[in-house]
Design a protein around this nucleic acid. Structure first.
Lengths: 134, 134
DNA sequence: CCTAACAAGACATTTTTTATCCTTTTAGGG
DNA sequence: CCCTAAAAGGATAAAAAATGTCTTGTTAGG
């Protein structure tokens, strides 16, 4: 359980590749896809999601392509993962009130809350800089 | 992402209910299913998995049913969850050597390892006793 | 031997994941 | 002003996983 999907994996590979490029090198989607071994059409969707929230910047037309929206040390793994996989929610009952209808005083609730916190903390503590250097 | 499936939810509900019963009260599957509001046929599958690894004991025939395999304080949430959802593996590359073929020195690897550890620690720290009392 | 109960396996349905394709929009260059 | 390069967006399709259901087998008690 708790497994990252293919999409999440691809997303990380793709953006880490971008982070490893010289700061203002505009990269073609097709090049990125080839480099990280991901279907270009699929990666396109992923980068569209990145683009919407500013994780990457995109340019169309001749000479277009992608580059990182911010410097690598300002993008965390948490942002990348949540961008494509949605928020980290181990159990529906952590979402908020009204979800845990079965049990007003649900004992499991705080446990999942804790899990969520730990996972988020770990992922938030890692930046693209660390993942791309060397 | 990282969401517990319905199966996992049902599993927890079912076994927590058992843990809340008097120690040697044998419970009918149909009663448990009704009490925790889970399809009986589905819960049957779940309890079969529990039974195989000794998390619950089962008795067939007239007067049969289920009871907890050990005392509630000796069963952790981690065991329950892993029994039905499989091991907690945030990313395939934490499984072991040979999986992370793309990158011998995969930088993301240790991060997922850490996530895995944290999640397991939280879940291992909670027993059915705590979840079932009061 | 009849009935109660769980065990096991096959099957069906729905949802999610994992793509692919086609059309549209934007931009540069001749 | 056209032509080409590139990303954006939407529709669709195939495969896998989740979520159940059903039928038959097994075990045990009375």
């Amino acid at each position: 359980m708790m497994e990252l999907t293919r999409k999440g994996e691809y997303a990380i590979r793709g953006i880490v590749y971008l982070a490893a490029q010289p700061p203002d090198r505009v990269c073609l989607l097709s090049d990125i896809a080839a480099a990280v071994d991901v279907p270009a059409t699929f990666l396109a969707k992923i980068f569209q999601q990145f683009s919407k929230i500013g994780l990457v910047k995109s340019y169309r037309g001749t000479g277009g392509g992608f580059l990182l929206g911010r410097t690598p040390e300002k993008i965390t793994l948490l942002e990348v993962v949540e961008a494509v996989e949605g928020p980290i929610i181990p159990n529906r009952c952590v979402v908020g009130a009204g979800e845990c209808v079965r049990d007003v005083s649900c004992k499991v609730h705080p446990v999942w809350k804790r899990v969520q916190g730990q996972v988020r903390d770990v992922l938030a503590g890692v930046t693209l800089k660390e993942l791309s250097e060397e």
